[in-house]
Design a protein around this nucleic acid. Structure first.
Ligand SMILES: [Mn+2]
Ligand SMILES: [Mn+2]
Ligand SMILES: [Zn+2]
Ligand SMILES: [Zn+2]
Lengths: 137, 137
DNA sequence: CCGGGAGTTAGACAGAGTCCAAGTCCTAGA
DNA sequence: TCTAGGACTTGGACTCTGTCTAACTCCCGG
């Protein structure tokens, strides 16, 4: 899919068993049309850019709902805030520690081998691979 | 090394170009004698268990100093707090999302292949591999 | 015994995220 | 069309992690 509209978003939400409200549609649209890793704060700013209509509580409620329903995923790289990722397919991340820029690494060519057996009664929720980089001195 | 004493800690600090003070020795001892991933709050509790003598500001100052000097490393897996890791050798992490338990995965057998070239002018600071697991439903 | 720099401190502060009780919105049913 | 009720949203208080600052203490060299 290449073009994101608010109508698309409503369908997407319904497909994930989420009741599409004004606010939820705007928040989904912010994430999917940008196709970037956004913090809650950035989502809030984008959504309220034209005219304020979505509260902080709703932004957090909604992001957590989206997470629960598997519509987005969270990326934990910065100790001070969570990033929300509209790309739920398997992929990894490159984090520029100076600038805070976070970009995707396609999972296709990356192989992770030799991980030990999981303890019994445990299942993998996800494997996060983060490459931290900085400008060469 | 298998037995950690406060005298050990003083030497260790000096070897890392850190002036060993009472508080710094206690904090290093908390981390190295436990050999666990501790949050700042946990360090604070351990250090002040017998009698309060180290302030919150000093705990944070000291942990950040230890990081800077390469004595410990930080592990960012939990969106709400940083864990400090006395093991600076290459290794990976297993994170139990329910309980918050964080354990090491030896790096020996793990191979990560096929990572793309870094953008020019960038160098790798570190590669974090985190396996998130939960109890089977 | 001093002087001064390094280290520590309490407490104010900032930012991310949660919680709550009150209000609004939407819909299904009469 | 009207209405009742559940779902959703809201402002603001609150919590928690982490930082900052200005005053104080400690320690060492002269
Ligand atoms: Mn609107
Ligand atoms: Mn002491
Ligand atoms: Zn991503
Ligand atoms: Zn570790």
């Amino acid at each position: 899919m290449h073009h994101y509209s608010r109508d698309n978003m409503a369908e997407l939400l319904r497909a994930h068993d989420i009741n599409p409200t004004h606010q939820r549609i705007e928040i989904a649209y912010a994430l999917f049309s940008h196709q970037e890793h956004l913090s809650a704060d950035q989502v809030m700013t984008i959504v309220n850019d034209r005219h304020a209509e979505t509260s902080k509580a709703t932004v957090y409620n909604t992001l957590n709902l989206f997470l629960e329903k598997g519509l987005i995923r969270e990326v934990i790289v910065d100790p001070s805030k969570v990033f929300y990722d509209p790309n739920t397919g398997p992929h990894h991340h490159l984090y520029e520690v100076d600038s805070g820029r976070l970009t995707d690494i396609a999972a296709d060519d990356v192989r992770i081998e030799g991980l030990p057996e999981l303890p019994k009664g445990m299942e993998t929720v996800g494997i996060d691979l983060i490459v931290r980089v900085k400008r060469t001195a």
